[in-house]
């Protein structure tokens, strides 16, 4: 076991510049796993415990690289997903392997139908792959039952949707509180968190407004704040700027940056917009269900 850890460390350290996005990583991990053919459980344990700590030398965005520690928060290993459309099986995801590091902003891009949203749902624990594994914060989610997955989502994950999904008949402050209502948090604690988040997104003066009284940008900011209410470790944003103009889109991406800086939250954004993707630390391109870059 220690031997395997050493090999993996060495391998990754030696090739750290292409470590996270290249197909090499895919093949290397496969090689690594093959090394444990006789005892695959050991391999998985090794991956769970694996932690790379090194300075990032080539990431996109404005984050001070020196502040980021390359701690994997989320891994996908050989993730596949198939759909049956009519009589045809469509392979939406093909042996996806990737790592998401703590505190980074990652853009998943690709053309429509490439599988990026499917991957986001699997990574976000609201869908399960047909093959492979997803390890979130050291926990393999594949065999978790529905309630445990719910706990995981509630405690560690936040979601931002293209269509916002704010409750139209709840005031802004109440909308932000919704995810916290599924926890045992006291009402006054929720209210405190909501106030703080409203300040963060600059909508404290809109607390009593209904969503219809807000602009699209304001609504999406509120939706982002809602995703933060339970202090998630990672936020998944599915086309968060899809319904916004460029100014608002820019503002939303700045908000993500700010959140990452303020809370250290990892953010995974699905977008087909290169401009939005350019705000990310790095970009993972999905094409026909495979990571191509």
């Amino acid at each position: 076991m220690l031997h395997a850890y050493a090999i993996l460390s060495a391998s990754m350290s030696a090739d750290n510049q292409e470590f996270d996005t290249s197909l090499d990583m895919h093949s290397r991990v496969k090689d690594f796993v093959h090394f444990f053919d006789d005892n695959p459980g050991d391999a998985i344990d090794a991956i769970r415990k694996f932690s790379i700590k090194e300075s990032q030398t080539s990431v996109a965005g404005s984050v001070d690289p020196s502040r980021l520690e390359r701690e994997i928060i989320l891994s996908a290993r050989d993730v596949t997903k198939r759909y049956r459309v009519g009589k045809q099986d469509i392979e939406a995801l093909k042996n996806i392997n990737l790592n998401i590091y703590k505190g980074e902003i990652v853009a998943l891009t690709g053309s429509s139908g490439s599988g990026k949203s499917t991957l986001l749902h699997i990574l976000g624990c609201i869908d399960k792959p047909d093959g492979g594994e997803v390890i979130l914060d050291g926990q393999n989610i594949i065999h978790l039952h529905d309630a445990a997955l719910s706990d995981l989502r509630r405690e560690k994950i936040g979601f931002v949707f293209q269509s916002f999904y704010l409750q139209p008949f709840l005031r802004l402050k109440d909308n932000l509180a919704v995810p916290a209502m599924f926890t045992s948090t006291q009402k006054h604690t929720i209210n405190d968190s909501v106030s703080s988040l409203l300040q963060t997104i600059g909508l404290e003066n809109r607390a009593m407004h209904y969503p219809k009284e807000l602009s699209g940008g304001q609504i999406q900011r509120a939706a982002i704040a809602r995703a933060l209410i339970n202090h998630p470790r990672i936020i998944f944003a599915d086309e968060p700027t899809g319904n916004l103009d460029s100014a608002n889109s820019h503002s939303i991406m700045e908000l993500f940056q700010s959140i990452r800086e303020q809370y250290g939250t990892t953010i995974v954004i699905v977008t087909h917009d290169p401009e939005i993707a350019s705000h990310a630390d790095r970009t993972i391109i999905i094409k026909d269900g495979e990571v191509v870059l």
């Binding site: 719910s150 995981l152 989502r153 405690e155 994950i157 919704v178 995810p179 599924f182």
Partner: peptide, 16 residues
Amino acid sequence: RKETAVYRAMGAKRID
């Protein structure tokens, strides 16, 4: 349904 799915994504259990 979509709203339910959103709740579920937020971590709501079936019992919730």
